[in-house]
Amino acid sequence: MTSTEQQPFLSVRDLKVHFSTEDGIVKAVDGLSFDLAKGKTLGIVGESGSGKSVTNLTILGLHDRDHTSIEGEIVLDDKDLLTATERELERLRGNKMAMIFQDALASLSPYHTIGKQIGETYRKHTGASKKAARERAIEMLRRVGIPQPEMRVDDYPHQFSGGMRQRAM
């Protein structure tokens, strides 16, 4: 790497994620490598069952540690994610890494408003007041193109279209 090249923000090297099942070992991810620069977006595409979700969940540290074998390297902003503690991963989630799940309706609680759910995440990571979290939720809805965010912040997930739910996520 030359002095003008930047270190990747996310580097995945030879990632292997295998699960033990009653039917034997499932090789969900088997030798994946990529780099992602800060400020860039990466789209992972592939057929159903090709390991897209498993890759993302492993990066986020949202895997069953007791039944999953992980090899390789995942480094986010100079932090080795495979040796990070749960507490360290919680601090990184939502601040430096996140995943927008394909089925936003299944990821959002039907019992809480969109604004409360966005605000709760913001409060957890910043310690902001409920009022500040609500203002942030309105601003975030505005940024992703939700019409009338001051009103829609009090809507429940079923009141949003599928695309609006994904943007809210």
Rank of each mutant, 00 (worst) to 15 (best):
L15Q: 06
G49M: 08
V144Q: 01
D80H: 04
R65M: 02
D154M: 08
S33W: 07
P157G: 03
D80T: 04
S33K: 04
K130C: 04
L76H: 13
G145S: 09
R13M: 05
N56L: 13
R152C: 08
E88C: 02
E88I: 03
S129P: 04
S69F: 10
S20Q: 14
R65W: 01
F9A: 15
H63M: 13
A106H: 00
L76F: 13
Q102T: 13
G127I: 04
T2G: 06
A137S: 10
E150F: 00
G162R: 07
I59M: 14
T55R: 05
V54T: 13
E150N: 06
I118V: 12
Y122T: 00
E135K: 06
Q148K: 09
T58S: 15
A106F: 01
V26D: 01
G72K: 05
T21W: 11
F101M: 10
L15G: 06
S109L: 08
K130V: 04
I74Y: 07
V45R: 12
Q102L: 10
K116W: 12
G119N: 00
K40T: 15
L62V: 01
R91Y: 01
R152Q: 03
H158E: 07
G43A: 14
R93W: 02
M164E: 11
D80G: 09
E90S: 09
S3R: 14
